[in-house]
């Protein structure tokens, strides 16, 4: 929708941060809820224990929520993803000096983060550990994004039905077995084509909307999509 043009969430945060707006805090919280697992695992891979990592990520988040971090000069602040990783690195580097000044859990906004779940991903990618932690971060970011998009889509489509249709989202349209789909869903072939197309269209729109949420400029959606795809296919 054209309304994205001026108000992506990330732009909103940027603009609002200058005035310490509460809307920015809420917007940031919404983004963070989706995208913290890659951060968690990134910190874990740095060799911190699970408990320390929880503290560090919470601390980092608290730091961001106070909007201090948003004022940091960042060459790549157009993307929330790059900004988050850059800030996190910065934060980790400084945490020695900050640790004793942090009040753990002392902030008033508590996010419901499922730490246990973020932990499960860690041991499961031994083959990928050869690639650098930054690449892994991007990869996990892409997965978190997809997961959010699919979950949203499932919620709006009706869960049961969507689980059956979902596999067709990842198949090239020219290779889709329309005849088989038609048979499975008791549709005509033309109707199957239309149905799949519509689902894919909604999926793409959601994916793009979601990516646009994390960018300062929605024109970069295509580029971001490409870099996420590269991260996943490495």
């Amino acid at each position: 929708m054209p309304t994205h043009f001026a108000t992506t969430q990330w732009t909103l945060i940027h603009e609002a941060a200058r005035g310490g707006d509460t809307a920015a805090v809420a917007a940031l919280g919404a983004l963070f809820e989706t995208y913290w697992p890659p951060l968690y695992r990134y910190v874990r891979r740095q060799g911190h224990s699970a408990a320390d990592t929880e503290d560090l990520v919470q601390g980092f988040f608290a730091h961001l929520l106070r909007l201090d971090g948003l004022r940091l000069a960042d060459p790549d602040r157009g993307r929330f993803r790059a900004f988050l990783l850059g800030s996190l690195k910065h934060y980790l580097a400084n945490q020695w000096h900050r640790e004793h000044r942090l009040k753990r859990g002392g902030h008033d906004l508590v996010l419901s983060l499922d730490w246990q779940n973020a932990e499960t991903g860690l041991g499961l990618d031994p083959a990928d550990s050869a690639s650098g932690p930054d690449a892994l971060f991007d990869r996990e970011w892409a997965l978190a994004l997809l997961e959010k998009v699919l979950a949203d889509l499932a919620a709006s489509e009706g869960d049961l039905d969507f689980a059956r249709w979902k596999p067709f989202l990842s198949v090239g349209s020219e290779r889709l077995p329309y005849a088989a789909i038609a048979a499975e869903f008791h549709l005509t072939e033309g109707a199957a084509r239309v149905a799949v197309h519509r689902l894919r269209k909604r999926y793409r729109q959601r994916l793009r909307d979601e990516i646009a949420r994390t960018l300062a400029d929605p024109r970069l959606v295509e580029e971001e999509l490409r870099s996420l795809f590269t991260a996943l296919s490495e």
Binding site: A142, L143, L146, L150, K166, P167, L169, S170, V171, G172, S173, R200, Y203, R204, L207, R208, E222, L225, R226, L228, F229, L232, S233
Partner: peptide, 14 residues
């Protein structure tokens, strides 16, 4: 569902 292909499909006609 393969995540890479999911994204690829958004790219193809995107």
């Amino acid at each position: 569902v393969c995540p890479a292909c999911l994204l690829a499909q958004a790219l193809v006609s995107g």
